[in-house]
Each structure stands twice: as C-alpha cells, then as structure tokens.
Amino acid sequence: MAGPPRLSDGDELSGRATILDVAAAAGVSRQTVTRAMNGMAGISVATKQRVLSAAEALYYRPSRFGRGLVLGGEQQLGLIVDDLRNPYSPELAAAVVRVAAARGWNVMLADVALSGDADRMVLALGAQTDAVIGYFGARAAEWIGLLGSVPVVELDPAGALTRGAVQLDRTEAIDAVVAHLVAVGVRAPIVLDAGRPVGRTARAARMVEAFATNGIDAHVVSADERTAESAAEATLRILAAGAPHDAILAFNDLMALGVLAACGAAGVEVPEDVRVVGVDGLPVGTLVTPTLTTLAVDLDEVATHALELAVAMIDGSAPRSGAAVQRTVRHRLLLRASA
C-alpha cells in the first residue's frame, strides 16, 4: 500500500493531509497523533516530536471543529487590517463579510495597528480560523511564520511572496490620470507620499515614473503618517513654501481629503489653482466638495479572489504558494471635479 505524500525540498503538497497521513508518516496510531497535536499526556517527548515533525512536513492542521473551538459547522475566515481609523479598512472588511457570508463563512477581524500586541493577535486569529487574509506589510514573513500551516492570502504584498496573494495593480490607472493631468496643462505636480522610514513607496515611485515618461519632473513630499491630518499639515507646508505646483497626487483617499481641507483653509481653489487626486475609490470621495478624483479598486473583487484562493488552499486544489495562488485586481481612474 502506498504511503502518504511526502515533501522534498521546495515541493508543495497538492492535497490536504489527514490525521491518518500523519499517523502513517510518524509510524504511530491516530490516537497518538491526537495526543501529540493537543499536548496531552501519555506519550514520550521523542514520539511527540516525531508526530509534530510529520505534521509540519505534510502541512497538516487539525480541525478546529474536532478541537471544539467553535460551535456548529461554519468555517471561519481571519481578516487582518492595519488601521480601522482609515475608512479603507472598514470598506474592505464590509466587502470581505459580504463575500464570505454568501459562501457560509464567518469573519474574524484583527487590527494590528491598534493592537497593543500584534503578534499575539495574529497568533490567536490563526488558532481560531481556517484561513487568514489581509494586509501583512513589512512584517509579512514574521506573521506568516506565526501562522504556521494556516492558509494565508496576502493583499497587496509589499515583499517577496511566500503564500497566496491578491496583487493590486495601479499601473494603468496611474498612467491614465497622469495622461489626463498632462493634457489639461499640469506641469508642476507634487506626489504626496505616505510616511515611511526610508525612501519612497512603490506607489509614489510609479507616479513619478509616469510623469517622467511625459517629460515632467514630479516633486515628492512625504507626510509623517497616512492620515488626513498629517496630509493637511504637509499640504500647508507645500502651500507656504511658495514653489509652483498645479497638482497634488496623494498616497490614498484619506490623505487626499486632508489635501482638500488644507487647500480650503488656505483659500486655494480646487481644481482651478491645484488639482487633487487620491487612491482607493472610497465612497466618501463623492460626499466632499469638489468631489474627489481617485484611482479606485473593486473591493468585492479583491475579497472574492482572496476567499477563492483560501478555499483552494484548504481543499488541496491549489498549492500553498506559487503562481497558482496569485490573482491581480487592477485600479481604474474615476475622474471627478477635483481634477
């Protein structure tokens, strides 16, 4: 009889391992696997380690339902966001809940920006869910390591991919808005970047590149934080400096709202004196005056791709990493009054 599937270096398990696979690989009974995985007494340290090593090699994860961590048969999806004070995060969460509910999934949310102990929150989320999706940022490697065998789908990953991912591609939308701005006479644009310790964000660099392709130098200014307040302060400094500027492209919509507020306070007319652009496509952009031009993303599409990838990773129809568990969602230009 053939043994359970085994992994060589760099290989991924194509099917989801069972407790019987782990038992066969470790040369023990099913009951012994249960004891080892749940930290129960009655087995030696060496046997426990052999079982845990086999489980790790097979990407085995015991059922939450078997451990009695939830009631009923609903599957649980973990969602990591980086700041609920940014309207983008609640909009994303609402989209994930809508898509998950249609498939009979529940959603558990963790805000790592507002948590006093983000590591503990990520670890707890992984223990209580069947898969985790969301924004991992610069700590992706650490948190994916904490999640162990839990299927993970990163949203808009910043670094090298080690699990599933939904990429957000702004390239075409940035090219479109830059082409529009150049066509209407913009010659001294400013890219208002998000605060970061070193260098520009990839988003700001792409905007600068798009202007350069059109023969225009865009000046980059960094706000201290990705907030409306910080963006407003940075905008007031820009206006006070007196340098020529006829467009401000903000890192996100929240910062763009801060730009609009600062322009209003300084008596600068938008779009007559300066054109303003955001990124995200938040509904609040239609409620301000002038309405906000933005590079929008369909969050329902993002949520759908993320959940589909998570399900495929769980049921074994897709590997735990690689091209098969990557999707791309593209932004689109929504041209409104501010530009």
Rank of each mutant, 00 (worst) to 15 (best):
E269I: 01
L125E: 07
D246F: 05
L257C: 07
A210L: 00
V220D: 14
A24D: 03
T213S: 09
A100C: 05
V96I: 12
R203I: 02
L92H: 01
R16L: 05
Y135F: 10
L77K: 09
R320T: 03
D82H: 05
A324Y: 09
V276A: 15
A138P: 03
E172F: 05
A110L: 04
S29M: 09
E225G: 09
G195A: 09
E233H: 04
P5D: 06
V184E: 09
R336G: 14
A124L: 08
L295N: 12
R320Q: 06
A55P: 13
G15M: 12
A243I: 06
L292Q: 12
V311Q: 11
G285Q: 07
D21H: 15
G148S: 15
V182M: 07
A140E: 15
R226C: 01
I190E: 10
S29A: 08
A232Q: 11
A54H: 08
V107N: 15
A303E: 07
G27S: 08
A17G: 02
I133Y: 06
D82G: 02
L161W: 00
F251W: 15
T291V: 05
H245W: 11
A95I: 02
M1V: 02
A312F: 06
M1Y: 02
A212Q: 10
D253V: 02
V208G: 10
V132M: 12
L309I: 13
V279F: 13
I80R: 08
A54K: 09
L69K: 01
F65V: 00
Q76S: 10
G185E: 05
S338W: 11
H305R: 01
R35T: 00
A265D: 14
L257R: 04
A234R: 05
R35F: 03
G267R: 02
S230M: 14
A212V: 02
G199C: 11
Q76L: 06
S149E: 06
E301N: 04
F211Y: 03
L334N: 05
P90A: 08
R6K: 08
L334M: 10
L168H: 09
Q31K: 15
V198Y: 08
V220T: 13
A23W: 13
G278E: 01
A324E: 13
V122C: 08
A205S: 14
A24S: 00
A176C: 01
G39M: 05
D21F: 14
V150F: 06
M108P: 05
A204Y: 04
N106I: 03
L123M: 09
L71Q: 07
P157I: 00
L249F: 14
V284M: 12
P244F: 13
A234N: 06
M108A: 04
P4W: 00
D11F: 10
I314R: 12
Y88N: 00
A324D: 14
S338N: 03
I133H: 03
G134W: 14
R187F: 03
T227M: 15
E56R: 08
E142K: 12
F211P: 00
Y59R: 15
A247L: 07
T291F: 04
V198L: 04
A141S: 02
A179D: 13
V177N: 09
L109I: 12
V152L: 10
L192T: 00
V277M: 13
V191H: 08
E269F: 05
L282C: 00
S149F: 03
A165S: 05
A212F: 03
A54F: 04
A101S: 14
V325C: 00
R206C: 02
V284K: 14
E229P: 05
